[in-house]
Design a protein around this nucleic acid. Structure first.
Length: 293
DNA sequence: CCCGGCGCCTGAGGGC
DNA sequence: TGCCCTCAGGCGCCGG
């Protein structure tokens, strides 16, 4: 699932290729994806691409922005003058010939370049609004602090990072189970199912434990584990589950390094037990009962 | 505050 | 070129 490392991977690509382009026109093929007035962005230039949690913000030079959430299957793929002619682009079938049947928005840019928004499940959104209104959107307004894994440049302004102290404070007063806790965007920004599972394995903590019952030492281990797995995800350019691709349409490689996520029935990485799959908060949860207490 | 359930969607995968 | 069914999941919303 696209989480902080995946969305940051997209952001880095958009920052490199999209910034400086002028938006010439927008072709919306599925109205529910886009809200706001598309006319407001015609002729404006992309100034910056920011991220907050799993959300992206494309800032334009006319004080308008496009807030984007790709949810499960959204893709933002750039094709145009700035892509090196010889690139190592390894395209999934879904990202090869664009537009395709899942392309719902096409941004026409200057210099014969294009930005495609594809979304198989159609869960994602693109909101066009004044830049000053972005952090008033419920998703951003209610977003919790995110673990410090990337330089502040590029992230939402004014967002204080999740410190160990803050983490201990919010974990310590929550009576929810630790795994759903980690995935709650209002508590912590950017962690989803894959990284929550992996972090809990790293920390040796049973996902069914109640948050506030974790010891001081366990909270510290978990905090470090979250940062460690998010950095690992970034290093491998994200995990391609479903349809995640970067801004050029390339897959990530982190899925080749999962320790527990989607490994049901496999021996655990420490050879202590077999990876078990249960449901927690309605979501698939993978863990080793021998390693995670 | 917390939880479970539903809705939004459609491709993948299992059973037959 | 098999068909049908269920499941998966980020997030918002609702009810208990």
């Amino acid at each position: 699932m696209p989480e902080l490392p995946e969305v940051e991977t997209i952001r880095l690509g958009l920052e490199k290729y999209l910034v400086g382009h002028t938006i010439v026109s927008v072709d919306v093929g599925l109205r529910k994806i886009v809200t706001g007035d598309t006319k407001q962005i015609f002729g404006s230039k992309v100034k910056a691409v920011r991220r907050a949690g799993k959300g992206l913000i494309i800032d334009l030079d006319n004080d308008y922005s496009m807030a984007v959430h790709i949810k499960l299957t959204g893709q933002l793929i750039y094709r145009g003058s700035r892509v090196p002619r010889v690139s190592r682009v390894s395209l999934k079938k879904i990202g090869r010939d664009l537009p395709n049947k899942w392309t719902y928005v096409i941004f026409k840019l200057d210099r014969d370049s294009l930005l495609y928004y594809n979304d198989v499940r159609q869960f994602g959104w693109i909101k066009i609004l004044p830049t000053s209104e972005v952090d008033k959107l419920p998703f951003f307004r209610e977003l919790g602090p995110e673990p410090p894994v990337v330089p502040l440049r590029g992230t939402m302004k004014g967002q204080a990072p999740l410190t160990l102290e803050k983490f201990k404070e919010i974990v310590g007063r929550s009576s929810t189970k630790i795994k759903p806790f980690l995935m709650d965007q209002k508590k912590i920004g950017g962690v989803g199912n894959i990284y929550a599972n992996e972090a809990l394995f790293f920390a040796g903590i049973d996902p069914r434990r109640t948050a506030k019952q974790l010891s001081n030492e366990e909270m510290k281990k978990l905090y470090d584990a979250i940062i460690q797995v998010l950095k690992k995800g970034l290093k491998y350019h994200g995990a391609t589950e479903l349809n995640f691709v970067d801004a050029l349409g390339q897959e990530g490689e982190y899925q080749q390094h999962f320790l527990v996520y989607s490994q049901e029935g496999e021996p655990c990485p420490k050879k202590n037990g077999i990876i078990k799959k249960i449901k927690l908060g309605g979501r698939g949860t993978y863990f080793c009962e021998k390693c995670q207490k």
